[in-house]
Design a protein around this nucleic acid. Sequence first.
DNA 1: CATTGTGAACTCATTCACAGCG
DNA 2: CGCTGTGAATGAGTTCACAATG
Lengths: 240, 240
Amino acid sequence: MPFGEAESIMTCNVSNYRVNMNKATKIPKATITRISLYCRQLELIEFDGYRMVSSEKLAWLCQVNPAQVRKDLGYFGEFGVRGVGYDVRELLREIKKILSVNRNWNMGLVGIGNLGSAILHNQNFADRGFYFVAAFDNDPKKIGNRVFPGLEIKPIEELASTVINNEVEIGVIATPASEAQHIADLFLAAHVNAILNFSPTQILVPDCCLVENIDFTIKLDVLTYKLKRELQSGQVERPT
Amino acid sequence: MPFGEAESIMTCNVSNYRVNMNKATKIPKATITRISLYCRQLELIEFDGYRMVSSEKLAWLCQVNPAQVRKDLGYFGEFGVRGVGYDVRELLREIKKILSVNRNWNMGLVGIGNLGSAILHNQNFADRGFYFVAAFDNDPKKIGNRVFPGLEIKPIEELASTVINNEVEIGVIATPASEAQHIADLFLAAHVNAILNFSPTQILVPDCCLVENIDFTIKLDVLTYKLKRELQSGQVERPT
DNA sequence: CATTGTGAACTCATTCACAGCG
DNA sequence: CGCTGTGAATGAGTTCACAATG
């Protein structure tokens, strides 16, 4: 198939798969979230020994519509075999390429409290090639401690230099809400423009900076909202 | 304004505010997430001494469109004053009522690893009335330990009885992915039908059960996906 | 008269339904 | 024949634009 056969559409063959390079198509952000979810479930069924998977099975595992699975993958290429399904290992490789998790990433963490420590030791990160190469806190009692061999807690003042020397690409914020904006500003000044924010507040950054928030309290609020609704619909009479 | 002036719309006056009780209108789930976000930002500006806030200011703080703020609140009532804005404290009270966080909630946690311990000690939960009244693990070395006074780690076998005795309403899962489904099943059997799942997998539950997932690895994948895109669009030539 | 509240317009996302194909 | 890939139909969510109003 020749390149440039239609305006704004380019396709090319990479690693035996036809891959869409269509820059015009807008990819929903929910699609990326789901593709990561597919990745998680594929890892599990690959471990269980599955070689092939249909969109229907993968959809069931992820609790989405089978057409959704096919459409999501369709944004990036044609990875399946009609009448058969998807090769688990091949699909996993393609998805990891899409998400850019077919390589390692260096991360720096600020805020070595209970949550920060848990994040540093989280095996799910290390298993997937996300490594912490820098750790910071403003508590003099913590500075100088080693969270594990080769990773010493440094003061916030050394953030810029340490982050640059260790080639940190992703900044992780696990401080109280009151500190989060300040830390984000420091990361930005050190040219770290991807931030994973665990603090329960919004940080304000320029467009060039990418932020993903993980706010536990919001998830709990959503849960209690739904729970209340369910309790209310369940009961016929409301007590005064 | 008389009650029942239109089919399927009911309004009534509660605590000085007109509150929509329209059961027909479908409320987007994103609206609930944002309302929780408004709650977070209102808490902060109330602390800073603000008495009034406009939809424009609140929207700016939460990085959403001002019309979005007004529409979200509009699903639940009329909380503002035209030409003036919203009373911070009053709006906060109304939002907490909407989210059902104007009361305390009992939670039970399974998996007392690094993450589980951090969750138990997370001040953001305690500050907002989310209390852990039960904690479980399958490691014999941990069972019997007290994470803090009055909260002893129990074996998984005692989940059902403990959860019922302590009136646990929300189950929190902080185990490895491989255990998550089993724990969810145990919570369900103990009539805990709201689950906050920190494990990096999907748990399968019947419709009556409410689940919110907090999957760190998905957030990181989304971040690396965007980061890769940005790096690619920034560079003109691709190195081999 | 500044700001809310909201129908209508628009944009974005999901699902359907079936053609395409191994 | 069965399952993928995808245009078309549907549905959901966001933003606009302005009437309503304290």
